[in-house]
Design a protein around this nucleic acid. Structure first.
Lengths: 207, 207
DNA sequence: GTATACCGACCGACCACACGGTCGGTGCTT
DNA sequence: AAGCACCGACCGTGTGGTCGGTCGGTATAC
């Protein structure tokens, strides 16, 4: 009773595999950014990649694995941007580095969308990206607190500056600005807004 | 060939309808907050309400209608909290009002969760809450800008304060803090963090 | 006071579809 | 001959939503 499988399209070209994988990750990044992880179907990613669903699942055993790949890729791209080649920035330089990051993100709306969506979705402990988001935040906070702290030691930042609060609110500003920017990209400049914030903080706590 | 429908359970009590509706809205608020709109099924809401799915859909014609009801309820509860009975607060008082709001939100994690999830999900223009989120933000921004502006006229806030940026970054801080707080509710106090921010801003731009 | 008509609350069965994932293949390349 | 890239068919499950119906209560007609 089994129907013989149909022939494939003649024009079919099996690509290098590495390429397909990379394209799938790029497509998934974009779709996860637009409609979230839950809101994106494997089939949709496959279609835009130019594969069948099974073809995509050949490269990534599950949807969660695809998400992992996306996150790893983001880490790889962003990874050393803040750490920089000359060691972690100290004191106010950290805020400049953050401003540069914000400026860079203004160029890459999918990555911003991806992160905002994911951060919200992954509040749920069972979400496959929960641990990742968690680490992302605590890593960022640690980095910033250390920078501010050593800024104090160098006498660049006031001794009585509330280090932890400064770190938390700075991260909060970045997140919140991203949210507003995604809603209305043309109506504002994330970079300018962040710099206004940084200037305020600086004026208040410079030694 | 049709099977006769079974009798209902004897213990069944048709409640006032108004009650069922209200309970459903409360349950939906909580579930949408925990798992997002997309991540919550109508059946799950129905079950926790003590209704069948059809029973729930009897009160709300669609899932989107349920969401609308949830948002309207939130607006109703929060609505005049900021506007206050004595007209909109002016100048720095606006920041006190916001601090009070943040303190109040620390008590109601579902509402915070609901909003954070929804704000992220509804970035997508096709989302049923897109317009709502949009209005929510622009309303809040208008309110804050006006408050700061009139603070300037009263000579309480420096003339050269960047009004728009101030509004945007303040809203951003609140959103960002909510995000961090949802991820780690016990590790921080939203209120304290927001007050630290407000103090910084005040110190910088008080006239 | 009883029969009748109607209404709102609610339910079980069902539907079409989309989902993530499996399985057994085919065909190209080496 | 082996291995890789890939596909079509299929499956179980969950989804939002529809449909026809039951039930208790209340207003009205007689």
């Amino acid at each position: 009773m089994s129907v013989p499988p149909r022939y494939r399209a003649k024009s079919r070209v099996d690509v290098s595999g590495e390429e397909s994988r990379a394209k799938a990750v790029a497509v998934a990044t974009e779709l996860f950014a637009l409609t979230g992880f839950k809101g994106t179907s494997v089939a949709a990613v496959a279609a835009r990649t130019g594969l069948s669903q099974s073809g995509l699942l050949h490269h990534f055993p599950s949807k969660a694995a695809l998400l992992t790949a996306v996150l790893e890729e983001r880490d790889r791209q962003d990874g050393d941007f803040l750490a920089g080649s000359a060691g972690p920035p100290l004191g106010w330089a950290a805020f400049d580095a953050l401003a540069a990051l914000v400026a860079r993100n203004s160029t890459r709306p999918h990555l911003v969308g991806l992160f905002v969506r994911l951060a919200a979705e992954a509040t749920e402990p069972a979400h496959p990206a929960h641990a990742w988001v968690h680490e992302h935040y605590s890593g960022l906070r640690r980095w910033l607190t250390e920078a501010v702290h050593s800024g104090q030691e160098q006498g660049e930042i006031a001794e009585d500056a509330p280090v932890d609060s400064l770190a938390r609110m700075t991260i909060a500003v970045i997140d919140g600005l991203q949210q507003q920017w995604l809603l209305h990209p043309d109506a504002m400049s994330m970079t300018a807004e962040f710099e206004a914030f940084a200037a305020t903080v600086r004026a208040r706590w410079a030694r």
